[in-house]
Design a protein around this nucleic acid. Structure first.
Length: 151
DNA sequence: GCCAACGTTGGC
DNA sequence: GCCAACGTTGGC
């Protein structure tokens, strides 16, 4: 899952312990959130639009999809005026903090890693803020960050 | 359904 | 700030 650290960072997640991941407004990403993400799934926390983009830590899906309430919130920048309460359009999962990498895995190093070739994140033009990661890639990223593989 | 115009993402 | 690579919108 991508986030701009100025918006919501791994440090904030660590402090909050858990958060509802709100504001995803892309249908493909929405589908992953709503249909694919299961309780217990590991989450790589990727920081974008920052000095050193890359994976900064790990979380875990602690509750499966619920309607993203910010779509109905007129005060929210994520408000979707066309969304109806009886037919929510956007969804959130709850993500809990697992760990912050002591040595983050910057994008530049991910690109160099042989065992990460083909990873969706590294594909040109790829902009999805929520995307699936294979277990092998997940573990490889963790190892690259100097952490034990797995969750 | 086509597609031009426009908006967004995100690395650099 | 630039710009490639998308996704969305809306006229037709």
């Amino acid at each position: 899952m991508k986030t701009e650290p100025s918006e919501y960072s791994i440090d904030t997640l660590k402090k909050d312990k858990k958060t509802l991941w709100e504001g995803v407004r892309n249908y493909q990403a929405r589908n992953f959130i709503r249909d694919a993400m299961k309780r217990g799934d590991g989450v790589l926390i990727y920081h974008s639009s920052t000095k050193e983009p890359g994976v900064y830590g790990v979380g875990v899906v602690s509750a499966e999809a619920v309607p993203d309430l910010s779509q109905f919130d007129r005060q929210s920048g994520y408000c979707d005026p066309t969304a109806k309460k009886e037919a929510p359009r956007w969804y959130s999962v709850e993500v809990s903090f697992t760990r912050k990498f002591t040595h983050p895995a910057p994008l530049s190093r991910l690109r160099e890693a042989k065992n990460l070739q083909g990873m969706l994140l590294l594909r040109k033009g790829q902009r999805l803020s929520v995307q699936p990661v294979s277990e092998a890639h997940f573990n490889a990223v963790c190892r690259l960050a100097g952490a034990k593989s797995g969750k």
